[in-house]
Design a binder for these strands. Structure first.
Lengths: 120, 120
DNA sequence: TCTGCGCTTGTGATATTATAACATAACCAA
DNA sequence: TTGGTTATGTTATAATATCACAAGCGCAGA
């Protein structure tokens, strides 16, 4: 598992976008430079980036973002503005108090959709 | 917007399943009775059920469940066991303390994946 | 240096999930 | 009863994601 030019390129595209990007939009961008990119190319790179904590999937949008807290593998809480598309990533929410007793969480998906401070 | 036999049937299938169900699995079940069901049939029914708060989408699974707290339209926190597939639905988590200032949440997706008390 | 192994990428096909667009039918109020 | 609204039927296609197998690359050890 190592960083490669291909993977670095995908990460760079995510960082440059600064907001959630669809896999096929990434693919289009890669194709405009490379021509030979195909879906597995981008999905594999995204899988790698998520595995090492450099990217997240925004589940309810089927989109991907660069992690704003690089080197942090844990789940993030995402605050996603429906108007301007910005995403504010937070970490470290406490364990919910109303969790079922005995439930052992391995991965959490927390996405809040609404309006950011600038957009309302 | 009213409950119809078709929509009631979709809800019944969700309730009977008792766990997250894929849209196309619902479709297969409907077809085995009806024969004429097509994707828009099931997706439209699911949209209706979610709109009135009788069903939720499990975003990270692309699956749907009956709401365990019927008549509650707000977001739910789902605790999903990766081993047995059970889903425990909770409501009423407090607003996160570390939210960005000024962010106005309209909809929240909260899904915790792990092992339920019985499965570990 | 060579060789073999594991990881990475290329490539074509296909699976899965979801929606668009338009036609028909059912419901219900005026 | 008629006209508008809501619901369903139907065909096609869009959008998202994975499989399977081949080829390349990089490096540890012979």
């Amino acid at each position: 598992m190592r960083m490669t030019p291909l993977r670095r390129n995908v990460l760079a595209l995510l960082v440059k976008a600064g907001e959630p990007v669809k896999a096929y939009d990434l693919l289009d961008q890669m194709r405009s430079e490379d021509g030979s990119a195909k879906p597995p190319t981008v999905y594999r790179s995204l899988d790698f980036l998520m595995e090492v904590g450099l990217a997240h999937k925004v589940e309810a949008l089927n989109a991907y973002i660069a992690c704003a807290h690089c080197h942090d593998k844990g789940g993030a809480e995402l605050y996603i503005c429906g108007k301007c598309g910005s995403v504010d990533e937070r970490h470290g929410a406490p364990e919910p108090l109303n969790a079922p007793t005995g439930f052992e969480t391995q991965r959490s998906v927390v996405e809040h959709y609404g309006l950011c401070a600038k957009c309302h």
